[in-house]
Amino acid sequence: MSSILNPECAMTCPICLETMKAPIVQCQIGHSMCRGCVSETNITKCPSCRSPLTNTRNYQLEQLIEGLSGMLKIQCIYTKKGCKYTLSQSEKEPHEYECRFRSFDCEGKKWANWNCQWKGDYAEIYKHFKDDHNNHTWMQYTTAANMKVNFNNDFMDVQIISFFNGQQYFYYKHKLDVSKAKAYWAFQLIGTKSQAKHYYYEFEIHNDPVRKFKVTEMCQSDVEDVNKIFEEERCVVMSFRVLKNFLVNDELPFKFRIMSLKKK
């Protein structure tokens, strides 16, 4: 077929103008298109030649596109903003979802329901916190502090942490859930999931030199839903019953440090 002889043209769906995705169907003349696009638009005639559409699958073209998808390199949608990644078709969407050059909303609004309408780029996030939420920037990548705890009210907090003078940035997220009678803590790298795998944290709750509750856990990416992280307990989690045993004058002494994994 002509579509196979000219794969560059054949790979573009005439409806969505993107690389076709299986299942691929044809018109009576032989032009191909995504069946999903046909269903969404409810068209009955081929956009290229106006001949009637059929349910005939173009399996040969599907196999060609599948084979080429691992070799074709496509630029990230954020190339003009500075992203230098070139990707296969299958890599493109997952990468763009977590690309550092994507647009960011205020994390406090997204997770802790702050009244903040800020949107911006990665390079502006820390400055935004400094300018508009300065009381949420005091933590360092090694921090020791005391926390007031009220077991009668739900509570959520997010802090931004600069790691080695801005080499990386992390979100500290803490939640008190009265209905579950549990407290949660997690640290998320502002970056990709693959980058986050290179960092971990040690979190310790203590009230004397001997009694300690210590957890070592991997950092996650900011694109992961922290509520799911808390639900699956891939984080620091402690019941209110246990937590009360560590209080000192109604305050919880804790400390943590974020570290990078040593390269082997």
Score class of each variant (00 low, 15 high):
M1G: 14
L5E: 13
E8Q: 13
A10Q: 07
I15C: 08
A22H: 00
P23G: 02
Q28M: 11
Q28L: 13
I29R: 09
I29Y: 11
G30L: 06
M33F: 11
C34H: 04
R35N: 13
R35E: 15
G36N: 08
T41G: 02
S48R: 11
C49K: 10
N55G: 15
N55R: 10
R57D: 07
R57K: 13
R57W: 03
Y59K: 14
E62L: 05
E66M: 11
E66T: 13
G70Y: 11
L72S: 11
I74F: 15
I74M: 13
Y78M: 06
K81R: 15
Y85D: 13
L87M: 15
S88R: 06
Q89G: 12
P94I: 04
E98W: 11
R102M: 15
D105P: 02
G108F: 06
K109Y: 12
K110V: 13
W111E: 10
W111C: 03
H128E: 05
F129C: 02
D131N: 14
N135Q: 13
M139A: 13
Q140I: 00
T142E: 15
T143D: 11
M147G: 05
M147T: 08
M147H: 09
K148P: 01
N152R: 10
D154T: 00
V158P: 01
Q159T: 03
S162V: 02
Q167V: 05
Y169P: 03
Y171I: 07
Y171D: 04
Y172Q: 05
Y172H: 10
K173F: 07
H174V: 02
S179Q: 05
S179M: 00
A181V: 00
Y184C: 03
F187L: 04
L189E: 06
L189V: 06
E202I: 08
F203S: 01
E204C: 07
H206G: 00
H206N: 03
V210W: 01
F213G: 00
K214P: 00
E217N: 14
M218H: 09
D225C: 12
V226N: 06
V226K: 07
N227E: 15
E233C: 02
R241A: 07
V248K: 13
P253I: 05
F256R: 03
I258E: 03
I258P: 01
K263Q: 09
